[in-house]
Amino acid sequence: MTHSVGAEMLIDAELLRYARQILLEGWDIDAQLRLKFARVVIIGAGGLGCPASETLVRAGLGQVHLIDDDVIEASNLQRQTLFLPDDIGKPKALTAAQMLQQINPLIEACGTVARLSEDNAYQLLDMQSGKPDLLLDCTDNFSTRDIINRISVRYQIPLLSASAIAMQGQLALFEPQLNTGCYHCVFGAPPNLDSSSDVTLDERTCANSGVLASTTAIMGSLQANAALQYLGLTKNPLTGKLLLWDGSRMQQRLIGYRQDKQCPICAV
């Protein structure tokens, strides 16, 4: 059974499941419908991808596609919340998608075991069916983020990029179609030497630097929060802002950025 007067596309099961969300001031059935018909591609099904995708799916995101070429290891279970001990050795993307489908049968979740590149992006993002509404960068190294940013700019797809290392995280939502700047404008080109050490940012990953379980959970949730506002309310809560989260001090702050008019990626 469907409902009329703006709710004709929400079935009873959806109205019941998302009732508390629809009751929110500023979030109505129209917002829920926009979320239902949104398609998101998440690159990375690990510490960030798990909490971000789970929150979005529970909230009613219509289609989610996870891309990851890695398999589940015992060390992942500390923070990658969609996986269980019996999943060790299985592909992350497929296992996460299967779990998401079980969490919410009303949505569509799929996974692809692959490494996204500029060469295969058109195929993996299913561009022949139309552009995704949003890309979520949930990877853990600088060079991959740079590639995802190039893809975002090339195909004019909004990019919600998060990172989490140790007890710190960063978050930004870039809209290349508005010419307001991109990941490269903020962070430059890899490799970028960290002035505080002799380790390049490209080498600083969870595998070699460590990460507290709560860091990925919090950053993944913040990423989902920004995505929900963008998809459901057509609002970018981070326009021109980079969010910096410091778990050791329990502090969060925003710093501004603008498009680099000399940026070789988005200003050409």
Rank of each mutant, 00 (worst) to 15 (best):
D194W: 04
V199T: 07
S163I: 06
L178N: 12
D202S: 15
N192S: 11
D194T: 00
P191V: 09
P190I: 03
S214E: 07
L212I: 13
G169A: 10
A164Y: 05
V199L: 07
V186K: 03
L159T: 03
R204L: 11
N208K: 10
G188R: 09
E203T: 05
S214D: 01
Q168W: 06
V211P: 06
S161V: 02
C206P: 05
T216P: 05
M167L: 13
L173W: 13
M167P: 02
G188A: 11
L201R: 15
F174T: 00
G169E: 10
V211C: 12
S163N: 07
Q168K: 14
L173F: 13
F187D: 01
N179S: 14
V186M: 13
L160Q: 08
S196K: 13
D198G: 13
A189H: 10
P191E: 06
A166F: 00
C206V: 13
V199C: 01
G210T: 08
Q168G: 12
S214F: 06
S161G: 01
S197R: 00
R204I: 14
N179A: 13
V186S: 02
A172W: 01
N192F: 10
A189C: 00
L212P: 02
T215V: 09
E175S: 03
A189S: 13
G169L: 11
D194G: 03
D202V: 07
G181A: 03
Q170K: 10
L159Y: 05
P190W: 04
C206I: 14
T180G: 06
L171W: 04
S209N: 12
V211Q: 01
G188Y: 10
S161N: 05
V199M: 00
A172P: 03
L212T: 10
A162D: 05
C206N: 14
L178S: 07
T205V: 12
T200M: 07
C206A: 14
L201Y: 15
M167H: 10
L193H: 02
P191Y: 07
L212Q: 05
S195M: 11
L212S: 09
Q168H: 13
E175I: 14
G169K: 09
E203Q: 14
G188V: 10
L160Y: 04
